[in-house]
Amino acid sequence: MKDYCLICHQEIKANFSWTTLFREEKAAKICGDCSDNFSPITGEICEICGRPFAFLEAEYKLEKRCNDCARWEEDEQWRGTLDQNRSLYRYTDFTKEVIAKFKFRGDYVLAEIFAEDVQLALQAFHYDYLVPIPLSGERLYERGFNQAEALIVTAGFEPTQLLSRVHSEKQSKKSRSERIHHPQVFEFTTDLQLNSKTILLVDDIYTTGSTLRQAAKILKRNGAAKVYSFTLAR
């Protein structure tokens, strides 16, 4: 059977060379052209959020941290909430397009493109529970699947559901100031005891880091010792 690139649907031609001959070759999911379009995050990064420094002007970082993280850590309310985030690729236009097709268009199979890289990345963490960032019931129905969960499952791991989205009705019952100062997005919905456990959160992208910190906060409040996160892109 022929293999087609999951992104451009070109036929993938077997690429025999001396190096591949001696290595166990897995069926490629995308073609060389598409594969070259991803920009893996390498080199120096922010010790907290994993942002690559190579593309950051000097004034946007403070020693080993990016300014955004420095600001999060200055805020008493958020200090130390998220212990560390790591991401695989830079959020370039190409990556953005692929991720949009994956989650908004609902092209589930695209998770396979990342499976191998995600597997390696997750293995690098020490954790007790692997937790996908949840979607609201409405979003989940709309998309048909949770993209973070799809990444976990496709990479061959078992997700644990510890959180759910707070219903927007519940949100609106709160006073305005309550909503602004404590914008509770998630709630803890499990009987599991988290005493001193380490959690690894998974999401597709790290944008402001706010969603992941919201989730981390709830988890720590419920006993988690450490909360790490992994995203596909940032």
Binding site: K2, H9, G106, Y108, V109, R143, G144, F145, A150, V153
Partner: peptide, 10 residues
């Protein structure tokens, strides 16, 4: 080659 599978939440 144009079809794929997924676990449908619906």
């Amino acid at each position: 080659s144009w079809f794929a599978e997924f676990p449908c939440a619906r």
